[in-house]
Design a binder for these strands. Structure first.
Length: 930
RNA sequence: GCCGGAGUGGCGGAAUGGCAGACGCGGCGGACUCAAAAUCCGUUGCCCGCAAGGGCGUGUGGGUUCAAGUCCCACCUCCGGCACCA
């Protein structure tokens, strides 16, 4: 009984391909190239999820298709293997992260191979490989060695950074500090979420409502020395250069919004002018008129950023963020206690709390006033956490009449509201909130100006008198690049130690020849009592080194998981190069990536970070193209199987879903006990009870996770691949359905029976398979199938490609004679989708393996054209009949053919024909009167 | 609140402004079988009708058009993301 048995043929062909290196990619492409890339997975302990093969199958189909068309294809796979779970596992069990990571990679590799993906496994890499870490660290050193030239808008070697004379004069240490302050990789104090109970620093997403997600322990934000990457320097280029990319518009917009460019003005408000101190203010203004607007503000002014300098005359108070450096200086003795308490409370709040929970505005008056630079009036300064320290200058001018946050704050604290903008279409109402554009009122010499004109004019005016200047800001922040973790790349940086054993502040890059800086062997991964990174507990022989007679302590922070994924697409091209991170000739030949498929969860960060690194490498001449990824596609999420949920009251009876209360408990209802009634699903036995129907995200806690191993065992890898592609459009979110899998498995069974005689005792061809010439009908069917499948692969519409192949099989199944000349091309186009079955059928048909490298069939256009077409005939736009006409019939021919149809003639009899629409090859429509 | 995306049979979905529901699941009927499974064939949007046939149908309400699932306006629901960025 030679039935289709995936468990027999799939491993066989996987071994065959591997043994012969079927999918090995040459060093350089010959002719047309295609770099087809998946977002590589994090090898979690749970193994492959059914979401992974969705994207991986899509790229695999395209890769196999391109290969069959003669393209040289690069299709690699690897592992993003640093990351928190391995470290937490280590803390719990004492297993070194490298060990558990290797075990997980082995599982992922087995599962990926089981699905028959045509990766060149010779190129596999993990971001944790010492050889890979070496080059990640090397790229960090490139960043460390680069400053951004704002004039050329380009990253340049730090040695080329112009040193101002006064810095030069201050000596070598000053020059070094100046350089360190301009590098793309620099150090700064940044707040971290330190959880004393867990003894570890937490990522933002691990902190929920001010306590740790695990354990619910309190978390405090404390400043810690951190490594930052100056991604903001590249903000403009990262935004502008999105333009030329073949990415979904929605992803481009997401990135652009994330970068969040805004334009406006910076304005200085002098601090501390008392009543009657007009002369001091006048002197300050006069001085500014000659010195101009200083690059950095002194302590005598409060500098603010605003996008609406046209509302300058409506300022009624100022706000500084709780972390503002001038806050202490601004606070008068009487307010000191209140301000200190407020600041302490703000420090306890995480970013999430400051936004999510505390919507109502809070703040404290500092007791100080600043002077309005144009009107000279005194303006009170408040501290409030609705102003963020990390954006703009960390201080704002508040215009309650024209900003909803300021309006709300002013309402809470009874502050003045001064209207200075009037809507175009009506007069302003005093005390109302109006955030739109209009014309200026009550604004000195600017009164009457339109918002836009006001903005550009006032920014220039302010600049001319040294009180302000036009400014650009980004929501994008510099990238906090260090983690207080063990399982990451160590920084290749040494901190010089003084005679006292304390750091001198002088940094030294590790010599590239010494890379990689390997992680030390730790036996104890347990957290400590301080927020120092685990590496600070390394053995002294790792931690302390001597170079050129000086003592150094190694940097003990590690890089975030993003680091490795920032450049893996480059290393795949030249994975064993020991001299360079990638050979230039190879890079030029293969880059950029032609198709990049992965989950939308990486739409912003991963793609932005890699683009940033790539641009730095480009500026420094290490890569040849400014953008890494040409065409990008996000595959949709796969949800669990559809579930019906009913609700039971505490007394036990059913409660209709729309009437449920808090006490009612959800209960799963089997699908066969439910039926649809109108808009809703109801219980079959109690139709007055509505139930909810929904598919949920797969999760362990919900217990709806589908395991790919199990699916392969039950249906085969080809069925899993095919099903994931048949479910719906690649980019859509769609629910899993086990009966759907069995449906495509049925299709594969039918493919098998098209070629193989299932009733014979031995594996032999079906008796219908013959060497006869195909009929015209058969050729037409074949060529139309090939044509549709070809176009659908190009547009990644795999679901409709499969549907078309199903139609072909449905067409062939009843044939008593099945010519090889149509079966063989069909098996060829099936190969990218169901490669194992295709290889087996190809061999059955006596063709030399592998079909995976067989030539893609050519479509003969003459089989795509029809001699005659059946077109619909409408009367008043309603379908009333059909007529068959020659395919090339003109409108008049079609009209008369339609009018001659007895049924149509009857409908038209006695009515006046107002108009006839006849679209050649499409339809005829009679528009009649009466 | 803001920004995306999506609403089409019992279900997943298909449809360059031109025959709505391809293909698959599920259902129903039949053939094969002692029977069942498997397989093959047919049928399957809803309503009225014995039938011929007719009516209604792509979230809701309007509009454009000879013709709208598709274009425009307003709204509703669901999903995803962002969220005090001055």
């Amino acid at each position: 009984m030679p039935r289709y048995q995936p468990s027999r043929i799939e491993p066989k062909w996987q071994e065959w391909w591997e043994a012969r290196g079927t999918f090995a990619t040459p060093r350089l492409p010959a002719g047309r190239k295609a770099y087809i890339l998946d977002m590589f997975p994090y090898p979690s302990g749970d193994g492959l999820h059914v979401g992974h093969p969705a994207g991986y199958t899509a790229t695999d189909i395209v890769a196999r298709f391109e290969r069959m068309r003669g393209t040289t294809v690069m299709h690699p796979m690897g592992f993003d293997a640093f990351g928190l779970p391995a470290e937490e596992h280590a803390i719990r069990t004492g297993t070194p992260p490298r060990q558990s990571t290797e075990r997980n990679i082995a599982t992922f590799t087995r599962q990926l191979k089981m699905l028959g993906f045509s990766y060149d496994w010779e190129r596999v890499l993990a971001t944790t490989d010492p050889d890979y870490v070496r080059w990640t660290q090397w790229i960090f050193l490139v960043l460390f060695d680069t400053w951004f030239d704002p004039v050329l808008q380009q990253g340049r070697p730090i040695a080329e950074l112009p040193i101002p004379p006064d810095v030069e004069a201050a000596g070598q240490a000053a020059v070094a500090a100046f350089r360190d302050g301009h590098r793309l990789a620099y150090q700064s104090e940044a707040p971290v979420n330190w959880c004393p109970a867990l003894g570890t620093v937490l990522a933002n997403e691990e902190v929920v409502g001010g306590v740790s997600e695990r354990g619910g322990h309190p978390v405090v934000r404390i400043p810690l020395r951190q490594w930052m990457l100056r991604i903001t320097a590249y903000a403009d280029r990262l935004e502008r250069e999105l333009d030329g990319l073949d990415w979904p518009a929605s992803i481009k917009k997401l990135q652009s919004d994330w970068i969040g460019r805004s334009t406006g003005a910076e304005v200085d408000f002098p601090i501390g002018a008392q009543e009657g101190a007009d002369s001091a203010f006048a002197r300050w203004k006069a001085a500014r008129a000659t010195t101009g607007f200083p690059e950095t503000p002194g302590h005598e002014v409060l500098r603010i950023y605003t996008t609406r300098p046209d509302t300058l005359y409506g300022v009624t108070y100022m706000v500084v963020s709780p972390e503002h450096p001038l806050l202490d200086a601004l606070t008068v003795p009487g307010q000191r206690e209140a301000v200190a308490a407020y600041r302490a409370a703000a420090a306890r709040k995480s970013d999430l709390d400051r936004t999510d929970l505390a919507r109502e505005k809070t703040g404290v008056f500092t007791g100080t006033h600043v002077v309005h630079p144009l009107t000279g009036t005194a303006i009170p300064v408040w501290v409030a956490d609705y102003v963020l320290a990390s954006y703009g200058t960390g201080a704002i001018m508040a215009v309650p009449a024209h900003d909803d946050r300021d309006f709300e704050f002013a309402g809470t604290f009874g502050l003045e509201v001064t209207t200075v903008v009037e809507p175009d279409e009506r007069p302003a109402k005093p005390g109302e909130l109006f955030t739109g554009e209009g014309r200026a009122v009550n604004s000195g010499g600017y009164t009457g100006l339109a918002t836009r004109e006001f903005i550009s004019r006032v920014a220039d005016d302010l600049e001319n008198v040294g009180l302000g200047r036009p400014a650009v800001n980004y929501k994008l922040r510099d990238w906090l690049f260090s983690r207080q973790r063990f399982w990451g790349e160590p920084f290749p940086i040494l901190h010089e130690l003084g005679a006292d054993g304390e750091p001198t502040g002088i940094l030294r890059a590790v010599d590239p020849a010494e890379l990689p800086v390997a992680l030390p062997e730790l036996t104890d991964f347990k957290p400590g009592d301080t927020p120092d990174p685990p590496l600070s507990r390394s053995p002294a022989e790792w931690l302390f080194v001597e170079r050129d007679g000086r003592r150094y302590r190694r940097e003990t922070n590690t890089m975030p998981q993003w680091a490795g994924s920032c450049w893996y697409y480059l290393r795949f091209l030249d994975p064993r190069n020991t001299d360079r991170f990638i050979g230039p000739e190879i890079e030029r030949a293969w880059m950029p990536v032609d198709l990049y498929i992965g989950g939308a969860e990486h739409a912003v960060l991963h793609l932005l970070y890699s683009r940033f690194w790539h641009k730095v490498l480009y500026d420094r001449g290490h890569v040849s193209h400014p953008e890494p990824f040409g065409r990008l596609v996000n595959q949709g999420m796969i949800l669990g199987e559809m579930e019906f949920t009913g609700y039971r009251s505490p007394k036990g009876g059913w409660v209709s879903a729309e009437k449920r209360g808090g006490d009612d408990v959800p209960a799963k209802v089997p699908a066969d006990q439910v039926e649809k009634q109108g808009e809703h699903f109801v219980l079959r036995d109690a139709p007055q009870v509505r139930v909810e129907s929904r598919a949920y995200k797969m999760s362990k806690s919900r217990g709806n996770v589908v395991n790919p191993d199990q699916v392969v065992r039950d249906f085969g890898a080809d069925a899993l691949r095919l099903y994931e592609m048949f479910m719906g459009p690649l980019e859509a979110t769609k629910p899993w359905s086990t009966s759907g899998v069995s449906g495509v498995r049925g299709f594969l069974d039918r493919c098998w029976r098209l070629v193989v005689d299932e009733r014979a005792d031995d594996l032999v061809l079906a008796p219908q398979v013959c060497d006869e010439s195909p009929t015209e009908d058969q050729l037409r069917e074949l060529h139309r199938t090939v044509d549709k499948v070809t176009r659908d692969i190009e547009s990644l519409s795999f679901n409709t490609a499969i549907a078309r192949m199903m139609e072909f099989v449905n067409f062939c199944t009843p044939l008593e004679r099945r010519p090889r000349a149509i079966l063989e091309p069909f098996v060829t186009i099936l190969a990218p989708f169901a490669p194992h079955l295709a290889e087996e059928l190809w061999a059955m048909l006596g063709r030399p393996a592998p079909v995976s490298l067989a030539a893609w069939p050519q479509v003969d256009g003459r089989w795509l054209r029809d001699d005659t077409v059946e077109v619909p005939v409408q009367v008043q736009g309603k379908l009333r009949g059909r007529v068959t006409v020659p395919a090339d019939a003109d409108a008049e021919t079609m009209r008369s053919a339609a009018a001659a149809d007895p049924k149509i003639a009857e409908l038209l009899a006695g009515r006046e024909i107002v108009k006839v629409v006849a679209v050649p090859g499409r339809l005829v429509n009679f528009v009649v009167k009466g």
